[in-house]
Amino acid sequence: MAKIIVVTSGKGGVGKTTTSAAIGTGLALNGFKTVVIDFDVGLRNLDLIMGCERRVVYDFVNVIKEEATLNQALIKDKRTDNLFILPASQTRDKDALTQEGVEKVLDELSETFDYIICDSPAGIEKGAQMALYFADVAIVTTNPEVSSVRDSDRILGILQSKSRRAENGDSPVEEHLLLTRYNPTRVEDGEMLSVADVEDILAIPLLGVIPESEAVLKASNAGVPVILDTEADAGQAYDDAVQRLLGKELEHRFLQVPKKGFFQRILGGR
C-alpha cells in the first residue's frame, strides 16, 4: 500500500509544485518508488518544473476517462530512478476530475508505488479538495506572511472535515508544516513572520524551513527539482525535510541570518 501525500496550501504561489517536485525526487533518491500527480488541471506546471513537458502525451484526465492506460500516461523521470510523473491536462478544467475516477487511479498506483505525491492546485474548491481527499499525510506549504498562514489554517480545517479519513472516522491525516521562502534577515527586520509565530498560529509539527533562494527560481526555469542542487541551501533544506518525513530527527537549519565573512564585510557583499 502506497502512502498518499498531498502538498497543499490554500494560497497560490507559495511553492506547492516546487515542493512536490523536490519531495518526490527526494523520496525516489532514497530508494522509494514514487509518483507525483499534478492535480492542477488546466494550469499544469509540474511537468515544466520537473523538465518533462515535451514528453507529455497522455495525462491524468485521459486516464480517468479511460482514454489511456496508466502506463501510457506515466512519465519516467530521466534523472532519478524510481520517479514517475502523472501530468495534468492543459485543455480540460477541474470538473474533469471525479472522485471515483481519482480513487481508481490512486488504487491502481497504490499497488506498485511506495509514495504518491498529490500536487494540489491553489484554492479550497473542488480541485484542491479532490487532491487532499484521499491523503494519508499532508504537507502544508506556507510562506511566512499573514494571508498565507490564514489560508493554511483554512486548508487544515478542510483536511480535518472533508478528507476520506475524516469522513470514515479513521485516524486523522498526518499534518506537516513546510515553511518556504523564509528570509531570516527580513524576519529580523520585522517584515516577515518568524518560524515561532507560524508554528504558534498553525500548531502543527514543523517538517522543514526552506530559505528564500535564487537557486529555487534557477532550478524551476531549468526544469530540475531544486533538491538535486546539493550546493544550494534550499536544496539541502528540502533534503532535510525528506529525511524528517522518513522519520529521522534533524535540527532545523537556515533559521539565522548567515554571518558575513571578513572579506564580505569589507567588500559589502550580500
Binding site: 487544515l156 480545517g157 480535518q160
Partner: peptide, 8 residues
C-alpha cells in the same frame, strides 16, 4: 480536542 480552524 483539535484546533478549530479558520472557516470552521
Amino acid at each position: 480536542t483539535r484546533p478549530v480552524r479558520s472557516g470552521q
